[in-house]
Design a protein around this nucleic acid. Structure first.
Lengths: 207, 207, 207, 207
DNA sequence: AATGAATGAGGTTTCATTCAT
DNA sequence: AATGAATGAAACCTCATTCAT
């Protein structure tokens, strides 16, 4: 399930460290100029090492983008996992999960925006990999919703609701110019949860 | 409000014709390879004329992308206008509008996908122009919703709901690999309208 | 049997002209620095046009080398053809052919040297193509020898003798530092023909 | 006359050992991909040590090629010396020498091919050195021929015949695709010796 | 109006070599 | 002696744009 980017470096710890530098530098650049307008030299510079060193840790420019995408999904999965681990299966759990997810999407706005706009620059393979990660995440939401509902719900409806929540979270980032002029992240979260609960016939949150 | 792409050609009719050829050819290419990976030569070829001729009708490659975006929004606005023109202000009007909008998003999937993935390649100016068009469209939805509701609703809630609907429509296209394996466009539309109506406390649709 | 190098130029006459410029420029450079040490920019400059233009007439640097090889073989085949066309089938015909071939190898020394040292830089495909041309040329020599001999000779012996002659011709060029200090091309030719005739038990040439 | 490649290692025995590893690995690689397409990293790996270590035993990549060429000539000279040492000066001696030389060329095919195709990648200095070795070897053949002939022969003719033999030997390797489909090494040797003897007016070999 | 040959800036990637450990 | 991470010059190639015909 893990797709490793080849490297000629042997020190695993160094790989980790350098690639983190890369992701950090690259996200800033991609956000500002997009993947295609960013040169590999700029990425190297922003990462704090030479172009030669950059290519010791990746094979192709595309690998940087893949690393960025991977980084995002790893973070999301980690966070979602924390919420899911909580064993209490109640309605509160759902609002907590959504709130948690939205907060993460707010924190990782830049990364999400970048990923949203640039995935299609990845190879078919990498796109498929990223898509699977997305499916996994939506599935996590499905589980939370399923656990939280006091009644049973059709599989398909579950899927749709989960997808809606998922997209609403990303939308906060990728439609920032439209949403963030109107709402704070708290307002946005509250209102979306209200709408969600209403559409699911759940009791008003006490908040 | 209209942003014209300069050209050295005098014959207005010819401009229209050639640019339609361009948009058609370009969308196919952009969908397949993305804006950056598509060359101007390919666009010219797909449009049925030479690279020299292409540059008689645009100034820069970016102009082609702009023309594509413009084309999409023109179509959406036109269609939404038709729905809005209907004077009856009832709940049915809302479901009709959403249904209509979703159907259009289904028809123009490719164009929407392209636009979604490539806007950031436009210049600030053009992006601002496109963003405004999007605001206009969301506003149209706000009007429809406002007109349809039997009760009054806060401005902010209206905006959020309109944005949700807008994104749900696009989501059908840009998350096609996830949605279209699960639903037909009719199912998707019905279910989303159901959820929408429930979240708005509107009576179940009869259909 | 012809392996065309793709180009984006449509004017056939122009292709011919530009490629001749290329071959001329490239041979000089390859002779001086070898294929790998010669840069595409140098080739473009030596050809009298820009790097961009160079790449309108070829796809890869390797194509230049292929064009050079092709040029040589075309020339040799043409010249050998002239000799072979002469219908008189006598011993003189053989010495004429060898003399003719050696003279050509002398004229095209640089090209032959280049080809000798650089064929292995070609792709498998191109190498196969070039090898076939070489087989063709050796076969032409076989025919001349066969026609000239007053007695019959085993197929294998014919092949060996033809190969020897062929290599002796090239050797004049690719071992120039050793041969050309010792002999003039006339001396070299005369002496090789003497040895050849003796080994074939043919009467001493009158010359 | 010996041209030493500088190194920072003191232990002479180690130098010898490591360089043998290098030559062995390098020949395989050069044969497969040519000198220029082979990277120093590959050479190091094929030699069984790290890139850092490689550079402890050579100064520049070219040194590896030089070492390979040197190795070949050392072997040839050694073998030819053995044959020459035999004091009997007869016609048999000539056919033995040729046979011996051809056998060596067969054994060292790969090395000879590599050297043939890559000498021009050496510096002027190294090329001059290698050329001198070649002159030495041709001269050894001249001596053998001179000793074997029952009549006197002009210096120039001697030189030419020696050169022909020399090239015929290498030709077995560098024209392998053409020769080795047609002949076994024994056939090839026999036939070439036949032709040689005939051209020198020597009696048919008994064998 | 239409064509397509020409241009060259600039992008990605490779790889010989160094040097601190 | 051995290692391998770091470097950056330099190579190949692409492609948006121009302009003479």
């Amino acid at each position: 399930m893990v797709k490793n980017v080849p490297t000629s470096i042997k020190d695993q710890f160094l790989i980790e460290k350098r690639r983190n530098q890369m992701v950090k530098g690259a996200v800033t650049l991609f956000k500002a100029k997009g993947f295609h307008r960013t040169t590999t030299r700029e990425i190297a510079e922003a990462s704090g090492f030479s172009i030669g060193t950059l290519y010791e840790y990746i094979r192709k420019k595309e690998d940087v983008l893949f690393l960025v995408c991977d980084y995002i999904y790893e973070r999301v999965k980690e966070r979602m996992g924390q919420v899911l681990d909580m064993e209490k299966k109640s309605v509160d759990c759902l609002s907590d999960a959504v709130r948690s997810y939205f907060r993460l999407m707010d924190e990782m706005q830049d990364e999400v925006l970048v990923m949203y706009q640039e995935v299609k620059a990845l190879s078919r393979d990498a796109q498929e990999y990223v898509l699977q990660k997305e499916r996994d995440m939506v599935h996590m939401l499905e589980v939370v919703i399923g656990n939280s509902l006091p009644y049973s719900i059709a599989e398909k409806d579950l899927k749709l609701v989960a997808n809606n929540i998922f997209v609403h979270g990303q939308m906060w980032g990728f439609r920032r110019w439209l949403m963030q002029k109107e709402f704070t992240i708290e307002e946005y979260t509250d209102k979306q949860i209200d709408l969600l609960f209403q559409s699911l016939n759940l009791p008003e949150r006490s908040s």
